[in-house]
Amino acid sequence: MTDKDKKIKTEFIASLVRLYGKDRSSLLPVLQEFQKKFRYIDEYSQQEIADALSIHPVEVNSIISFYAFLYDKPRGKHTIRICKNIVCKFHGNKELSKFMEKKVSEFNKDKSEESKITIEYVNCIGLCDRSPSMLVDEKVYEKINPHNAEAILEELS
């Protein structure tokens, strides 16, 4: 990471801490906002956040590792979260997963790490009545089949 990148991150963290308050209870919002901008929370920034909130870096790391939606490793541009609850599983999630895996690996081919799509399987996202369902970044998609999935993927590229 260049010094310039570091500076940008440190300043962004400082602005978040100003916004949410220099208090431990600001930790999650700070991490969430940081991740929204930089996709993951790198080692350097974890320490900066810890310092800004007067806690230990290992505590920040611990929090990131506890919550499924926070990451300390680099990630691609988009995250597709497919619901793996049993209702979705019984209603076409298996076919959907297979289809998505295939399509996404085609999509990711020849792409830089940064612009790749990540597929994750997550626990119930509260759309069992419209299964199978998934989240693409923050958008919800319901009753997905290979046909409309294709369109969703196209939107991402």
Partner: peptide, 22 residues
């Protein structure tokens, strides 16, 4: 916002989470 942890539905875990803990 939560960050993807079922356990935070338990009221005291929810409070811990709000306070910035696991």
């Amino acid at each position: 916002l939560g960050s993807g942890a079922y356990e935070c539905g338990e009221e005291t875990a929810l409070i811990e989470s709000l306070e910035g803990y696991r």
